[in-house]
Design a binder for these strands. Structure first.
Lengths: 201, 201
DNA sequence: ATGATAATTGACCGGCCGGTCAAATGCAAG
DNA sequence: CTTGCATTTGACCGGCCGGTCAATTATCAT
């Protein structure tokens, strides 16, 4: 009687959920093992250390995020600037549904980890930063498309994209602090209006 | 030979710095005691628990923040909308100087703590949220002043203020993930252009 | 069937965690 | 000088932390 998912995968998924809803430091190996119904030795068969686990979690869910939430939000069927509104919707519903389940807003896994461990582990920091960069690139491509189509005026699309991502992360942070997903909705309309102009030299 | 500062104050300040540069969970009582040159029993004479310490840290530095960084940034001698640019400057120099000293960007103490413990302790979460609310109020008052003076069009000043705070926290988050204070500078110009319009019913 | 390897078990480790306590000391008021 | 309280000391606690290991069991290619 094999388990549906293989052990390694189950560990990663349990860890991801726990890290996301609490914090890296607060979730212990023991707890992860219990939740994955395995023994500690088995955990260390797959991961040399807790740090290697969080690396795997980040790697795995960076892809999931890019291909899931982000890809879905940046639906190419929508007009470019509508996609940006759609990001807000996606973020809102994600946080909302999680609150309905657990009673609190987990925030963004990557944002949480970035603030918790950026100063303590430069490799993890760089990994998290890469996740943000690729999300920013999605925004940038969308903006470039909008410029091409003449929907918006030319702008510094890379900087604007980064600014939009910053605003999104900030919204989620504030929503988490208020434990109210409505914050995202209430303030979301400003996202697509952010503009950073091209430098003129 | 008494110490310059009394013990309780020294504990709070050591803890504040450590929490800010690392994380709540990562910094132990023992370490705080060592850095404050006291024994554990002395610590527990002043604080019933670690949690009570972080409450004191938040309380104390919420005031410091409001009267220090925030008050300084919102310099009433400046035209209202210039103050908002000044907030960016203040945030930039603060993070920059800290990086020059420690090699990394600590981010915002309140943002860090909010993401780390909001889901785990509702009282702390509410405390952090109150800090954000009072910062938001500063933005709002500034916006109201600008509207009064006819510098900007009427707007939903409360929502816009919250949006500005979100953006600021997002900038700091991204800068921390990139470990580069220049992010704040590069994207800062968009802060004062954020607008959320009044609802029309 | 056999042998190698992958996976799993469960007991174990040193060390650190937050927290406690009785005893000693500092200090100030009477 | 004494009383009484605030402060500080340093040893101590149980429990959990991340991590190890030898032994067992499942898997699979030959």
């Amino acid at each position: 009687m094999n388990n549906i998912k293989d052990t390694r995968q189950r560990i990663i998924e349990v860890a991801k959920t726990r890290f996301h809803n609490r914090s890296y430091a607060d979730v212990g190996i023991k707890e992860i093992c219990d939740m994955a119904s395995i023994q500690k030795g088995s955990f260390y068969h797959f991961f040399p250390s807790k740090r290697d686990l969080v690396v795997a979690v980040i790697d795995e869910f960076a892809i999931d995020w890019a291909n899931g939430f982000v890809a879905e939000a940046f639906d190419p069927a929508l007009p470019p600037m509508d996609r940006i509104d759609y990001v807000i919707d996606a973020a809102y519903y994600w946080q909302k549904s999680n609150k309905d389940l657990n009673g609190h807003i987990p925030g963004c896994l990557f944002g949480n980890l970035a603030l918790e461990i950026s100063t303590q582990d430069d490799v993890l920091r760089a990994k998290l930063n890469a996740v943000f960069t690729s999300a920013k690139d999605r925004f940038r491509d969308t903006l470039d498309e909008a410029v091409e189509q003449g929907i918006i005026d030319p702008l510094d699309s890379d900087a604007t994209a980064a600014a939009m991502l910053a605003y999104l992360e900030g919204l989620i942070l504030l929503a988490k602090a208020e434990n109210d997903p409505e914050v995202i909705y209430r303030l979301g309309s400003a996202l697509k209006k952010i503009r950073i102009e091209l430098n003129k030299h």
